[in-house]
């Protein structure tokens, strides 16, 4: 990995974010159906609308509007949320932190659960264990989050059982136990599909690696089975799995939207849904941009991890 590569890669990310910002801005503020109407609602008078249009600069040419808007964002002035009466920057910042906790916990869970399942599946290919796991994975992958979430809520958090909190968020500062308990259901819901997907991927990669010449060579060396699987095979099977996982992050961001809403988790997804429902334009724009940035950065992280796992990958 060279500095030049990293610079170019960051340059691409900036370019992608610019395109996203333009799209977001275009959809929310430029398209007909006037932002002022959107904010004020359809029952506003013509005068109110006029005043709002002037205040938001909606009568300026589009490039001036966009330049002004982008300039503010780059300066860190993300505006005020009309509905929540709070600066958007701190609003989005808090939400981003909580969503990151959820996403991070999910990714860790997915890796810890999917890797052993995938490896076991490859080693026990064709056995009953492999078939059962395969079947469960198919089921897991085919049930959408809102169904899983509802089922989990009814079964383990319903009035009859009440084993786990049905929703909400407790900061870690108020007690680690409650913090963790509140995370169980959202993380479980988000993980299910990803575990199904990733474990299948690892199983097939692992199967291929186990059939390769260098694994035979390792057997000829008389190495123990543990060493062959964990040292020789796993590392080579993980690099492609990480590539798949990095694509899954996009899926995870979509899932967060649903899961945060169902479990009342005050993160980015919930904020975005609130913003859409309440026509809070500035919040909508900021939240979307931050999500796009998170996705591009996670892809960059995946590229770097792959290069660490596979010495043949060399970015120059």
């Amino acid at each position: 990995m060279t500095a030049g590569w990293l610079l170019r890669r960051l340059g691409t990310i900036v370019l992608v974010l610019l395109i996203v910002s333009f799209t977001v801005f275009g959809i929310t503020q430029l398209l007909p159906g006037n932002a002022a109407v959107m904010i004020l609602g359809e029952f506003a008078t013509a005068d109110q609308r006029h005043a709002m249009e002037l205040a938001m600069g909606l009568n300026d040419p589009w490039y001036q509007q966009y330049g002004h808007w982008l300039g503010n964002i780059l300066r860190g002035d993300w505006g005020m949320s009309a509905g929540l009466s709070r600066p958007v920057a701190s609003l989005v910042g808090d939400a981003l932190g909580r969503s990151a906790i959820l996403a991070g916990a999910t990714l860790v869970t997915v890796c810890l659960v999917a890797t052993p399942i995938g490896v076991a599946g490859a080693l026990l290919r064709g056995t009953v264990f492999d078939l059962v796991i395969g079947l469960v994975a198919y089921l897991g992958a085919s049930v959408p989050e809102f169904v899983t979430a509802t089922l989990l809520l009814v079964v383990v958090a319903g009035p009859d059982t009440g084993w786990l909190p049905a929703g909400g968020f407790t900061p870690a500062a108020d007690g680690l136990g409650q913090f963790a308990l509140h995370m169980v259901l959202p993380v479980a819901t988000l993980s299910l599909i990803l575990v199904a997907h990733l474990s299948r991927q690892i199983r097939s990669e692992m199967g291929e690696v186990l059939g390769s010449d260098y694994i035979r060579a390792a057997q000829v060396k008389g190495l123990t089975r543990t060493r062959i699987v964990l040292v020789h095979a796993l590392r080579n099977a993980l690099a492609p799995a990480v590539a798949v996982l990095s694509l899954d992050v996009g899926y995870l961001l979509g899932g967060i939207l649903v899961v945060e809403e169902v479990f009342a988790w005050p993160g980015l997804g919930r904020l975005l849904i609130y913003a859409v429902q309440n026509r809070d334009l500035v919040v909508m724009q900021a939240a979307t941009l931050v999500m796009a940035a998170a996705y591009t950065m996670s892809n960059l992280a995946a590229d770097i991890i792959i290069a660490k796992l596979d010495p043949r990958v060399h970015y120059a």
Binding site: D213, Y214, A217, V231, H232, R235, N236, A239, P311, R312
Partner: peptide
Amino acid sequence: FQDPSTALNPSM
């Protein structure tokens, strides 16, 4: 082995 390019572990 016949082919040393496949007989060695690429990431070791």
